[in-house]
Simulated assay, not measured.
Amino acid sequence: MLPVASSKPAADGAVARATWALPLAALLVCLAGPFVYKVAIRFGLTPNMPARLALATTALFTGALHEDGLADTADGLGGGRTRERKLEIMRDSRIGTYGVCALILSFGLRWSALAAIADPLLVAFALCAAHAAARAGVPAFMSLVPPARPDGLSASAGSPPGRSVAIAFALGTLALALALGPGKALVGLIL
């Protein structure tokens, strides 16, 4: 995980106000993946291995934060019958069957897509657009969906102001448009 110095804990909605920058932060993180992909291709590897290495690199750079969230969500939604039990499962640090299956499916789909693209420049565009666009919706989600529990990370982060939501959405849309072109970006936004 990339070390980030912090002199004091974020408070008073600072995290929510800063969510506009999530797509930009994603672009910084995602550049490592295409770099590793290109180096692996230069060593003569077929696209399958560079795709795996690129995904592993981006997961390493984020501390697998997103993969952890995906696994927790899958375990909670798949394993619990009541709201309380689902939240308890999501807070548990152990991974369950649903989490493992979600991670296998997620990595498998991303790996297959990158291997199919094959061209290092197009892989770079795809990774950067996917990282930026995926994080661009987070501020809107945070402002529209109430926290699941009053003592969780989401509750302490706060609700982003409309300006942060709009800027993040615009940055994510721009990343998609630059990588895919306007028509395909529109399809991506709709999906």
Rank of each mutant, 00 (worst) to 15 (best):
residue 1 M to G: 12
residue 3 P to R: 10
residue 9 P to T: 08
residue 10 A to H: 08
residue 11 A to G: 07
residue 13 G to N: 08
residue 16 A to W: 00
residue 19 T to G: 06
residue 19 T to Q: 14
residue 21 A to G: 09
residue 27 L to T: 05
residue 28 L to D: 01
residue 30 C to S: 15
residue 30 C to G: 15
residue 32 A to V: 11
residue 37 Y to V: 13
residue 37 Y to G: 10
residue 38 K to T: 13
residue 39 V to A: 14
residue 39 V to K: 08
residue 40 A to Q: 03
residue 45 L to E: 07
residue 46 T to F: 15
residue 54 A to L: 05
residue 57 T to C: 14
residue 63 G to T: 06
residue 66 H to I: 00
residue 70 L to I: 01
residue 76 G to Y: 03
residue 81 R to I: 04
residue 82 T to D: 01
residue 83 R to K: 12
residue 85 R to V: 06
residue 90 M to P: 05
residue 102 A to P: 00
residue 104 I to L: 12
residue 105 L to G: 01
residue 106 S to Y: 05
residue 112 S to G: 05
residue 115 A to Q: 05
residue 123 V to S: 10
residue 123 V to K: 09
residue 124 A to Q: 06
residue 127 L to P: 08
residue 127 L to C: 15
residue 130 A to K: 04
residue 135 R to C: 02
residue 136 A to Y: 00
residue 138 V to E: 09
residue 141 F to Y: 07
residue 145 V to F: 00
residue 147 P to Y: 06
residue 148 A to W: 00
residue 149 R to C: 01
residue 150 P to L: 14
residue 150 P to N: 15
residue 156 S to N: 13
residue 156 S to W: 03
residue 163 R to H: 08
residue 164 S to A: 15
residue 169 F to C: 13
residue 171 L to I: 13
residue 171 L to F: 13
residue 176 L to V: 07
residue 176 L to Y: 03
residue 180 L to T: 10
residue 184 K to H: 10
residue 190 I to E: 02
